[in-house]
């Protein structure tokens, strides 16, 4: 084999090995100066909502004791939501533990306590909300006009910060009780 014709391959191999060696040398480190990702913050908000919402006892059963956090549609959270839930459960001494469920069918909503409606479900959002009306479920989404269309909590971003709208009336309509502290921080929509 002509060694000259192999040159690009050799350079390719050397570049690769150098880069791989360098990853070995640079060790991972973490500083709070790093900027979190939007979905990481939203995952923390989602688990955090459980502290500020009270569900009626009827929302739980023997088989379903935990607070079920459902994600309907395409998952934007990666590992972040599972990490946030695992860490919340670890720290919990009292109160209900959490679990995450990814769902596709609308019938599965009946077993949820928090329902995050992904943007991928935009086309059937009104059907989703109609289904959710029959359960004690807190509906949350990033979709525009979600609260206006009957949803409870809607994330939005302004100047690279994550905030949320809440409609206390629809929340209470599902027999859920929002904490005053939550309403203080949120932008209230009536």
């Amino acid at each position: 084999m002509n060694i000259l014709s192999m040159r690009p391959f050799i350079v390719f191999a050397i570049t690769m090995s150098l880069l791989i060696v360098l990853t070995g040398i640079t060790s991972p480190s973490y500083g709070a100066s790093k900027t979190p990702r939007e979905y990481q913050l939203k995952a923390v908000f989602l688990t955090g909502f459980t502290k500020f919402i009270e569900w009626p006892n009827a929302a739980f059963s023997k088989a379903n004791r935990r607070i079920t956090l459902c994600v309907l549609g395409k998952h934007p959270f990666g590992r972040a939501l599972n990490i946030a839930v695992a860490r919340t459960n670890k720290r919990k001494r009292k109160g209900r533990r959490l679990k995450v469920r990814t769902i596709k069918k609308l019938k599965q909503i009946a077993a949820c306590h928090i329902l995050y409606v992904s943007k991928s479900e935009r086309r059937r959002r009104s059907t989703v909300l109609r289904y959710a009306q029959h359960s004690h479920v807190l509906t949350v989404s990033d979709m525009k006009h979600f609260v206006k269309n009957g949803g409870m909590i809607q994330f939005y971003t302004r100047r690279n910060k994550v905030r949320f709208f809440i409609n206390p009336k629809t929340v209470r309509h599902a027999d859920l009780e929002p904490h005053g502290n939550l309403l203080r921080i949120a932008d209230i929509v009536r």
Binding site: P36, A43, K161, V162, N181, I185
Partner: peptide
């Protein structure tokens, strides 16, 4: 990162700048 964020309260969380 999640651990760091979970240490903050909601008010602090709404003030944090994120990568969209």
């Amino acid at each position: 990162m999640i651990e760091y964020l979970q240490e903050l309260d909601f008010e602090q969380l709404t003030a944090i700048e994120v990568t969209l």
